[in-house]
Amino acid sequence: MARVRVREHVNPLAEKYQTSIAPPQWDNLYGKVQQPLHLDIGCARGRFVLKMAQALPQWNFLGLEIREPLVEEANQIRDQLGLTNLHYLFCNANNSLQPLLASLPTGVLQRVTIQFPDPWFKKRHQKRRVVQPELVEQLALALPEGAEVFLQSDVEEVALQMRSLFDESPVFQPTTAGWLETNPLPIPTEREIATLARNFPVYRALFHKLNPTGQKDPHSEAQGGEGQTQING
């Protein structure tokens, strides 16, 4: 399959991206819909979750991407490989995340990754960044206790902004005070591999979801189903 060529950056505030997508029928997308779900926001070509789905068949994986040709290509590759624990959706996470999260089976969402999002360096463009207070609030409401949010970027300013927004939430607790030295996931992204090959730093942070009172829920151990694995920072 020829590699799809698309624009590197897409403005999520453009009019064409302002319509929220209708949630899919999850039973039609996954062979075992009650498996724990890993959501990758801004998955680009989707190779990270593709490899994760192959390595961890006891998990389901969902990639969200705003560039539709990349989603079509990724789903074609998924179909060719016959994977039933992987799906990609074309959407703007800044306006489609809430209805998607609300439609998921209760308790299945156990991990969220946001990796190397578009930096939008100019101050007037920073409202285009994917991690906004509304996104953090939506994840805080949707994630069960013990679920994980993993963030990474090769732009320190962007990583600091993402980490500070999750730090400000009373229900997300970082695993370390500073940056993680290594990636706790078994599969790196293509961007991470390229960045480290140039000896440039990658800034990483891992958060766990607390219950609303900040106290451990004694029933949370059962959430996520058989085969759930926690990332250890």
Rank of each mutant, 00 (worst) to 15 (best):
W59G: 02
Q161S: 15
A222R: 13
T113L: 10
H9Y: 15
R163G: 06
G82D: 04
R3F: 13
R5D: 08
V10D: 10
F166N: 06
W120M: 10
Y203E: 03
V71Y: 00
L206Q: 05
T182N: 15
R191F: 11
Q161K: 07
P36C: 08
D167M: 11
A55S: 14
E137G: 11
Q58L: 10
D27H: 08
L100A: 02
G146C: 06
Q115I: 13
A222G: 14
G146R: 10
N92D: 10
N232F: 09
R67Y: 03
P174G: 07
S220F: 08
A205F: 08
V108A: 04
K127W: 05
A93K: 06
P99V: 05
L37H: 00
L64F: 07
D167R: 09
T84E: 14
G178N: 13
L210W: 01
D79F: 03
A177N: 08
G214K: 10
E145H: 15
A93N: 03
L109G: 03
G146T: 05
R3W: 07
Q161P: 02
P99T: 01
T213W: 12
Q228W: 15
P218K: 01
A55H: 14
F61E: 03
R7I: 04
V71T: 05
L56C: 03
I77S: 00
Q80R: 13
Q34K: 12
L141K: 14
L86H: 01
I21M: 09
R129P: 09
I193K: 14
P105Y: 12
M1N: 09
F207C: 05
P144M: 03
Q54H: 11
P188G: 02
V6L: 00
H208T: 15
G146V: 12
Y17H: 15
T84N: 15
F116W: 06
E190Q: 12
K16V: 14
P212K: 11
F150S: 00
R78A: 00
K209M: 04
V108N: 01
